[in-house]
Each structure stands twice: as structure tokens, then as C-alpha cells.
């Protein structure tokens, strides 16, 4: 096994790990009880999945074809910039349109703040 092949395998294993993470986060979307916890699974686990699979692809092409792809890094950067913004906006919009927290939730520090605003308007 040459060094090139070992690096190639490292890339392959990273891609495999990334796809396992994506499956787990999809599983989480189905299983969790409400919008807020689901958004954790949807936006978060997938960031790690994207990071793993894109860097795996980068390493693979680097080892096999000596091709350094800057576009893959740009892809990681933009996913990391946009995923938290969309997650934040979805949960915020959900809370403001009175989507209830799941019954198993224990504390809700936001309730008074938003509720007070509603009565003022």
C-alpha cells in the first residue's frame, strides 16, 4: 500500500462518516418531538456531515488527481455561514407565531418577553 493509497482511504472513510452523520440527522428529524428540537437535528448534525464529506472529497481528489479544489472549501464556508442563520430564523419565526414547545420541555425563559410584547401591541 503506497502513501497515496492510504491518503485515498482516509478520504473515503471521511466521506463514509459524513454520510452516516447525514442519516443520523435525518433520523433525528423524524424522531424528535417539536420544531425547536428538530431544527437542532436538521441544521446542526448536517453541518458536521457537510464538513466531513466535503473535506473527504477534497482529500480524495488531492491524492488521486493532484487537484486542489478551492471550490470545496468555499462550499464548506458558505454552508457554515448560512446554516446557523436559517436555523435561527426558523426557530425565531416559529416562536413568534405561537408554536408550542413539546410537553417534555422544562423551562421557557422567553415566554414572558414575547408575551409582554403581545399585550403592549
Amino acid at each position: 500500500m503506497s502513501i497515496r493509497e492510504i491518503i485515498e482511504w482516509a478520504g473515503v472513510i471521511l466521506i463514509l462518516l459524513g454520510s452516516i452523520m447525514a442519516v443520523i440527522s435525518a433520523f433525528g428529524i423524524l424522531r424528535l418531538p417539536d420544531v425547536y428540537t428538530r431544527s437542532h437535528a436538521a441544521t446542526k448534525s448536517s453541518t458536521l456531515a457537510v464538513l466531513l464529506s466535503l473535506s473527504g472529497t477534497f482529500i480524495y481528489f488531492w491524492a488521486t488527481e493532484n487537484f486542489i479544489s478551492v471550490r470545496l472549501f468555499l462550499g464548506i464556508t458558505f454552508v457554515f455561514l448560512t446554516a446557523p442563520v436559517s436555523g435561527h430564523l426558523i426557530t425565531r419565526a416559529a416562536y413568534r407565531s405561537n408554536v408550542k414547545l413539546a410537553d417534555i420541555s422544562t423551562e421557557d425563559a422567553l415566554k414572558d418577553v414575547i408575551h409582554k410584547k403581545d399585550t403592549e401591541e
Binding site: T43, K44, T47, H88, R92, Y95
Partner: peptide
């Protein structure tokens, strides 16, 4: 800070 917090799983900055 908000971006990094929202990116780490288990916590979302809601407001």
C-alpha cells in the same frame, strides 16, 4: 459568538 453557538449542536440562539 451567535454564529458559532448556533453551529455547535445542542444549542440554538433563538432571540
Amino acid at each position: 459568538l451567535a454564529l458559532l453557538l448556533t453551529l455547535t449542536p445542542g444549542s440554538v440562539v433563538m432571540e
